[in-house]
């Protein structure tokens, strides 16, 4: 287990300076994510235009993996359709749980999270933002739990 695999430069950078941090007002949908195990909390707001995710912001507190994952996700999903986001999440989840030997090139910077697969307890940290995004896309306002 190499710590540098988990905390890659891209991850540390997105943790230090998260992109799309904040809150959209007004927003078309929002959702709360909560990981009770480590106390991570995420609030996500988004706007849709022509069935595409035109903008999103997140705020909250969490470990480096959860913050970096939310930041990287926010860049990756902007402008995409629901179907494209669902497919992207399937691939990210496969990568996080070690089911991809090599992350495909189109995952781009999201591939920086590939090291999470070696740290099974951290998979929930990295996937919290995706669960929250899915909940917001379904316009659910109830808090999401990764438990």
């Amino acid at each position: 287990m190499d710590l540098k695999d988990l905390y890659r430069e891209v991850v540390l950078d997105h943790n230090r300076s998260p992109r799309n941090f904040g809150r959209l007002e007004p927003a078309d949908a929002e959702a709360q994510g909560h990981n009770p195990l480590c106390g991570d909390r995420l609030h996500l707001t988004l706007r849709l235009q022509d069935e595409r995710l035109s903008d999103l912001r997140f705020e909250g507190q969490g470990c480096a993996i959860s913050v970096a994952s939310a930041s990287l996700m926010s860049e990756a999903v902007k402008g995409r359709s629901r179907a494209e986001i669902a497919q992207l999440y399937d691939e990210v989840h496969a990568m996080l749980t070690g089911r991809l030997s090599h992350p495909p090139a189109h995952l781009g910077k999201l591939a920086a999270l590939a090291g999470v697969a070696e740290f099974p307890v951290r998979v929930k940290c990295a996937s919290l933002c995706w669960h929250t995004l899915n909940a917001a896309l379904e316009r659910a306002n109830a808090p999401v739990s990764t438990e």
Binding site: L6, C63, C125
Partner: peptide, 19 residues
């Protein structure tokens, strides 16, 4: 975040609780 403290310490063979 304490979770990250715990992971870094674990990589050094040190077991602490975080949460």
């Amino acid at each position: 975040h304490p979770h990250d403290i715990g992971t870094v310490l674990d990589s050094e063979g040190i077991a602490v609780r975080t949460g």
